[in-house]
């Protein structure tokens, strides 16, 4: 759209900006390399998907039954229109499971994949 072009056109390339891009690359590379050489001893992940989240029909998001850690669902970006899709993020806080709703744009790779999957399931 127009306004985003406006900002893009204004993007100023400078030595400091180039330095940043370089430093960013280095930081990622170092992080990855460090992990590889550290031979991190983490237990192999074995993450089960809780039953109540299984076969979570995306398009029928009204049936979602999510225990939100904050207890209030007011802010939850439950899908109300067609531009986003609802995902549930599994998290651990103090070793307790928590679930959060997260609106992911329909155009994101993750959403597209899941939709394709659902489509395929329906065909069967």
């Amino acid at each position: 759209n127009g306004s985003s072009l406006q900002l893009k056109a204004k993007k100023i390339t400078s030595e400091e900006d180039d330095e940043f891009v370089k430093a960013f690359d280095t930081l990622i590379a170092e992080s990855v390399a460090q992990r590889a050489t550290e031979m991190t001893k983490a237990p192999a992940p074995d993450i089960a998907i809780p039953v109540h989240l299984r076969r979570n029909k995306v398009l029928s998001s009204t049936s979602l039954n999510v225990s939100n850690s904050d207890g209030d669902d007011e802010n939850d970006p439950i899908v109300k229109n067609q531009t986003t899709m609802n995902f549930v993020v599994m998290m651990k806080k103090n070793n307790k499971l928590h679930f959060h709703n997260l609106a992911v744009p329909n155009t994101s790779e993750m959403a597209l994949r899941l939709k394709a999957q659902e489509e395929a399931d329906r065909q069967e």
């Binding site: 983490a42 992940p45 609802n86 899941l114």
Partner: peptide
């Protein structure tokens, strides 16, 4: 993301998210 469900978790790219690591 989970293969068939709309569930996601945050994992580090190595070792936890590497091909061989994930059991489930």
């Amino acid at each position: 993301p989970a293969k068939a469900d709309s569930v996601v978790v945050l994992l580090c790219r190595q070792p936890c998210a590497s091909q061989s690591a994930l059991k489930d």
